[in-house]
């Protein structure tokens, strides 16, 4: 079993970015020139520099949700493809090979909400519903379609918890075996 979720490295990097922004904000507030030397904060007013940090933190919050979701989506698709391989061995006929090839190829085009619904049999359907909300927020961050309006805001922490919970459930479920990935 893998001890580390594929989401963990992204989450760790995000926390480091948040810490760096916090240190930068302290440096700006204290006008600590040694910290701010050779940065773009120089020649800005304190207010401008703080606003830059705040904006960067908001952007980082959005980007981490994009990144977490992309990894989550890729991971669950890979699980489906791995599970699909069972078709070949039961029994390993030319026909089953063809079926498997078709399934493996087509999975890429399945709608993510339909894929998530498959997992309702192995995890709490309520969590799947929350994951769909993360996806909705991710789509809004990626496309900013003002005609559709902004969905309820999802914090990075909440998004990380929700989709981590699903991956953990998959990892623990006997049908799925290990979720360790080669990538």
């Amino acid at each position: 079993m893998s001890s580390e979720s594929p989401l963990d490295p992204i989450w760790e990097s995000y926390k480091v970015i948040c810490d760096c922004l916090k240190i930068a904000q302290r440096g700006i507030s204290k006008k600590d020139i040694r910290l701010l030397h050779k940065t773009d904060f120089l020649t800005n007013s304190e207010e401008q520099a703080i606003n830059q940090v705040i904006k960067s933190r908001t952007d980082a919050n959005d980007y981490v949700i994009l990144s977490l979701w992309a990894t989550f989506e890729r991971t669950i698709m890979e699980y489906l493809q791995i599970q699909g391989r069972r078709i070949i061995i039961n029994p390993p006929t030319a026909f089953n090979h063809k079926v498997y090839e078709k399934v493996e190829h087509e999975i890429e085009y399945w709608k993510i909400n339909d894929i998530l619904d498959i997992f309702k049999v192995v995890t709490d359907p309520d969590i799947i519903g929350q994951a769909k909300q993360v996806k909705q927020y991710r789509d809004w961050v990626a496309h900013r379609n003002i005609n559709k309006g902004a969905p309820p805001n999802i914090t990075p922490q909440k998004a990380y918890e929700i989709i981590s919970k699903i991956l953990k459930k998959l990892e623990e479920h006997p049908d799925f075996g290990t979720i360790s990935r080669t990538a």
Binding site: I33, H37, F41, T43, N44, S45
Partner: peptide, 25 residues
Amino acid sequence: PVSAWIIGANGRIDLIGNFDQQILI
């Protein structure tokens, strides 16, 4: 004029045109 309180300087003026902007400190 932009500010009298600037990080790493003692004041700032911006030179602003239609094409770009430059910072003088």
